[in-house]
Design a protein around this nucleic acid. Sequence first.
DNA 1: AATTATTTGTGCGTATGTATC
DNA 2: AGATACATACGCACAAATAAT
Lengths: 359, 359
Amino acid sequence: MEQDKPKYLQLKEYLIGLIENNELPRGNKIPSENELAEKFHISRHTVRRAISELVNEGVLITSQGKGTFVNNEPKSRQNLIGVITTYIGDYIFPSIIRGIDQVLSENGYSIALGCTNNQFDKERQCLENFMKQDIKGLIVETTKSALPNPNIELYDEFRKRNIPVLFMHGSYKGYSASSIYEDDVEAGYIATKHLIELGHRKIAGIFKIDDIQGHARFEGYCRAHRESGIDINDKRIMWFGTDDMLYKFGKQSGDMVIEFLEDSTSLVCYNEQISIKVIDIIREKGLTIPERLSLVSFDDSELAVASEVKMTTVAHPKEKLGIEAANLMLKMIKEGDGIFKVKMTPELVVRNSTGRVNG
Amino acid sequence: MEQDKPKYLQLKEYLIGLIENNELPRGNKIPSENELAEKFHISRHTVRRAISELVNEGVLITSQGKGTFVNNEPKSRQNLIGVITTYIGDYIFPSIIRGIDQVLSENGYSIALGCTNNQFDKERQCLENFMKQDIKGLIVETTKSALPNPNIELYDEFRKRNIPVLFMHGSYKGYSASSIYEDDVEAGYIATKHLIELGHRKIAGIFKIDDIQGHARFEGYCRAHRESGIDINDKRIMWFGTDDMLYKFGKQSGDMVIEFLEDSTSLVCYNEQISIKVIDIIREKGLTIPERLSLVSFDDSELAVASEVKMTTVAHPKEKLGIEAANLMLKMIKEGDGIFKVKMTPELVVRNSTGRVNG
DNA sequence: AATTATTTGTGCGTATGTATC
DNA sequence: AGATACATACGCACAAATAAT
């Protein structure tokens, strides 16, 4: 033997080597304790120690009177990837998960799921749960991504343990990490550009204030305006947050929304859950889309074609984003550290909620 | 000491007892090996064996030169519950998962997710993945539940390992297991009954053929007819499967659907994904709901109120079903074996897709 | 700063028990 | 019944880390 390593460790390595080189195939009997002791001129006690540790690690199985055997099913590898999403009612969530699951399950991984309901304390709970699981990677849809995050230290802890973390839909401000996201600035840009090309100049916008996606889409909205030399009027912008979302677009707020849209000929609307409600409000007032108001939405979910008015919308990559996220995660697991950024390009889907401006 | 158990096992139990009774609080030093050996009149070797096993189990931590200590963070328990769903695009899926997650995360469990896309081979893959994970329980939304299942042996394997299995949305035919489900017969019944009470006698039905839910809703449909002495006409029943679903209700099939509905004044429609498409087809022909056709749907998802016609529908318990499923799972884990059946009652939500029959 | 006692880690030898073939 | 192989158990010696003197 070699070096000054403990003899029982040397024997362990020797046995593992034999198994890995297939000189001791699965299920085979290994030499008896006495044989090993004799061969390496060590005591049987020392042999037993090496074997007992390998048994504990699930590599070997001992059977009194029969012998010691190489375990057929190697250690049950954990192969879990943690996935944290925000508000699971997020209507594009199932597509994303499906994409992730598709890739991961093919590679022998499973998804461990947690949802935050877009609340920091729930996010923390998820992270702490996953910390106890032996996950191999973490994919996180950011919670209230436009705000500073109080759970950064936990994310650091994962990285300290060499567990790669991948953010979806934008990472936290000022926190450097791998991320995969739709190019939301571009999405906001092409949505607005489409309306401008149809002759619209009075373009209202509804955006989400506590998600970075809302900020980005707004930025695209602004860029399209600037590029075309159209001034942006603050009165045409409405912001909403996770908390007042239900209220602001409920039945009781119909008049407020109508008033907000009064002076505009078109609307860039944050997502289809909101768009559906806006369409309802407008229809109830006897107004029509796109004649009275052209509307561009985002995501291209089931809801985009659920209404009689089929929405013109900027399609979110959804399932494809999930697939790419999973592939990137596998790469990160393989290659170890490094910060990756993947940006996915959105596409405009023109249906019949938009038309040339009237008058 | 006692009995004829191996001495090292007796010592292990003694130490575990001390820890559990808090006589050796977390982080404390336990007596040294020599002290224990002396106290119990056993050799130090035997003491070491007991301690080394406890170290391996994560109960103790040894430190050369310092001593042996009770581990502060007891073994990172796995606490994973496997959840298998069918086609994840199932539009009520997010709600169910949210319900499950809500309960499980509060109890320190995480969800391991897999989806089958309603295909048996994918279901098998999920089960095999979970077999390798050390899951504590399994909640399964049945795949093609009306057909015999080729993966029964795998479910048996879980039960052999004392991992409780809970089926959602009906268990497999002829397989006795715990299950939690909406009372779909009742759902079909109250949907049909509602139409009958509005004076309808010519009630068409669209049902899914390869899910047991489709069969059950159809059964309720039949019962309501029988009870009211109305004959069922086979020509008013349309069946569809997972595979021909997209085709049967796509644009190209509009005429076929219209022809199918020609002689009926109302429709009981399997779910809202289908209902939305039927509504579209009808609207394109210039017909109106509920004047020309009253429609009752199932599930009460986002889609039910997405269209201009707000659907009368039988509300699926969704989130509540998820919550109940998770609670039942926790109970099964605690109490061990036993077969539980939980039936949840659906409720009719009357909106404006149904009206009194004309003429 | 060096010494010493304590505690765990490594290693050998031996004996007996028990399951399997 | 006997040989073989693992399981339990005792005793001893020395190494290495730690803490207290």
